[in-house]
């Protein structure tokens, strides 16, 4: 039975998928984040694996439902079922293998073909601990992620660098998108928790906050 099974109390449930070439470390990122485990001798994933973990964003509990599958080939039978309903994705490559970075573009295409336009994507360069074997320069990946409107982080599932941050950042961003949508959708600021500032994406943040304050008053 899962360690995080009993955390039934949550405000939001977000489905996140892990994608990327075989052997980039998706499963280890997942186990590092959900169980704080890492296994050097991990086997290739068979079928689909799941894990959950709850995190706090603002004063909400967000339950992340993480889906992980073998990255051996794109366009499999399970593809559409795998992506269905995902609101966030970690697109993982291996900084020591340039080809895995080159394939990011194709993963991105598949992801965008199967998910909502609002899906929050983070490009993750994993195995950052292997500095001496680096084949993908950080700047190259960063500029690519900026072009493609993705977030970007380099992680190491082995020494846990940035793993927590990567997942949390994606979840937070999804939460922001969601609440922005809720705001746009209902147009009723009363439905939002009090005292909470929400970045609704306006250039002029001050007026945005002010006007919402005014309306509720």
């Amino acid at each position: 039975m899962g360690a995080y099974k009993s955390d039934d109390d949550y405000d939001y449930l977000f489905k996140l998928v892990l994608i990327g070439d075989s052997g980039v470390g998706k499963s280890n990122l997942l186990s590092r984040f959900t169980r704080n485990e890492f296994s050097i001798e991990s086997k290739s994933t068979i079928g689909v694996e799941f894990a959950t973990r709850s995190v706090h964003v603002d004063d909400k509990i967000i339950k992340a439902q993480l889906w992980d599958t073998a990255g051996q080939e794109r366009y499999r039978a399970i593809t559409s079922a795998y992506y269905r309903g995902a609101v966030g994705a970690l697109l993982v490559y291996d900084i020591t293998r340039h080809i895995t970075f080159e394939n990011v573009e194709r993963w991105l295409k598949e992801l965008r073909d199967h998910t909502d336009a609002n899906v929050v994507i983070m490009l993750v360069g994993n195995k950052a601990d292997l500095r001496h074997l680096r084949a993908v320069p950080t700047e190259e990946a960063r500029s690519f992620s900026e072009r493609e409107n993705m977030f970007f982080m380099e992680t190491s599932a082995l020494d846990a660098t940035n793993v927590e941050q990567a997942f949390t950042h994606v979840l937070t961003q999804i939460y922001r998108v969601m609440s922005r949508k809720a705001l746009d959708g209902t147009g009723d600021p009363m439905s939002l928790p009090k005292g909470q500032t929400i970045d609704i994406g306006n250039k002029d943040d001050v007026t945005a906050v002010k006007s919402s304050g005014c309306c509720s008053g």
Partner: peptide, 9 residues
């Protein structure tokens, strides 16, 4: 999903 994985695609 609670059980962690579905090995049979």
């Amino acid at each position: 999903m609670e059980m962690g994985a579905i090995a049979d695609e």
